[in-house]
């Protein structure tokens, strides 16, 4: 067993709910536990509003936890002093979905990539410049880009710049928040290949957040499926895609349109994703689940071990085992 690089332990995040009256809050992330080992990619999939981006922000320490704890190399961020917090922050970086918004439009590419260096003790201008060149080279951009502005670059090139910036401080973990969703298919392939290469070269761990299951499957070692703030299934990638156990995971996988016209789309789920204000009791999926029973409407299941590399949170699974 590897020692995990990042360990989430029953992490929760509540936000005050606006417009619903006083003192109410909703749980954007609810009792999430997850380990990420050095050099591995964990995919985090789910539909909009399921809390996957919030979880990413929690990992980056951009938001405070409501409950639970996050350990990075065994250390709890909250217990560190300011200098240690800074050092730890530089170990975890992010690449956002929209490189248009994640790059300051008033900065030149050189200024964008050197920003983290300047903020982390690279005082020597010459060394910094050298490092920026080296970083751009790593992501496949030449020197001629140094003096350009983000709007002069294509979407794919901008995402390369964002990646160069993310690896500038030699982080151990990068949160990839839908890094290819805003890109065209042909460019998406370039970026995915680049990420894979960098992971090999730099021994990076990725927390790969996406709603695109095909892309997640391509890049991840294991995949966590989130629904309504909880991880409802967690398994090694092949296991999850070949043998999904949670009814929601099954529905999700069946909903992906297949490129083969002869494999028709099966729509097995009706109804809408519950909104935060109408959060159902019990298992959050019961309102759309085809095998829900009274128990599901009352009691939310816990994530439970099924077999090596596969955990599921579904009442039907425990039922099945008892019978």
């Amino acid at each position: 067993m590897f020692k995990p690089l990042l360990s989430l332990q029953r992490v929760g995040k509540e936000f005050p709910a606006r417009g619903t009256g006083k003192g109410l809050s909703y749980k954007a992330v609810n009792e999430v536990s997850l380990d990420i080992c050095p050099g591995e990619t964990v995919g985090l999939v789910g539909e909009s509003g399921c809390g996957k981006s919030t979880l990413g922000y929690l990992v980056l320490n951009l938001l405070d936890l409501t409950s639970g704890e996050i350990l990075f190399e065994g250390q709890n961020f909250a217990n560190l002093n300011k200098d240690q917090q800074r050092a730890l922050k530089s170990q975890i970086q992010i690449v956002f979905q929209d490189p248009q918004s994640s790059l300051n439009p008033r900065f030149k590419i050189e200024q964008i990539v050197e920003e983290p260096l300047r903020l982390n003790g690279w005082r020597d201008k010459q060394k910094r410049k050298e490092r920026v060149r080296q970083l751009l080279d790593k992501v496949g951009l030449g020197e001629e880009y140094l003096a350009r502005f983000p709007h002069e670059l294509s979407g794919g090139q901008r995402q390369r710049v964002a990646i160069a910036r993310a690896i500038s401080l030699n982080p151990k973990l990068i949160v990839l928040d839908e890094p290819t969703s805003a890109l065209d298919v042909s460019v998406q392939a370039q970026i995915l290949n680049l990420l894979k290469k960098l992971q090999r070269d730099l021994n990076l761990a990725f927390l790969f957040i996406s709603h695109n299951l095909a892309v997640v499957r391509h890049l991840s070692n294991k995949v966590a499926v989130m629904y309504f703030g909880r991880i409802i299934e967690l398994a090694d990638t092949n296991e999850l895609f070949n043998n999904p156990l949670h009814p929601y995971t099954k529905v999700l996988l069946q909903s992906i349109p297949n490129i083969n016209p002869e494999k028709p789309l099966l729509v097995e789920v009706e109804g809408e994703i519950p909104t935060l204000h109408k959060s159902p009791l019990g298992c959050s999926f019961h309102s759309r689940c085809s095998i829900a029973n009274d128990l599901c409407r009352e009691a939310g299941p816990e994530l439970q071990f099924i077999k090596e590399g596969h955990w599921v949170s579904c009442n039907a699974m425990s039922r099945g085992r008892k019978e």
Binding site: G156, Q157, D184, V185, S186, A189, Q190, N193, A214, H218
Partner: peptide, 23 residues
């Protein structure tokens, strides 16, 4: 052809083929 090869394919673990350059 290139567009189809650039799609992540569950049946192959190989590197995705991207189209060089940009529009």
């Amino acid at each position: 052809k290139a567009l189809l090869k650039a799609l992540p394919n569950p049946d192959s673990e190989t590197e995705l083929q991207s189209i060089p350059g940009s529009v």
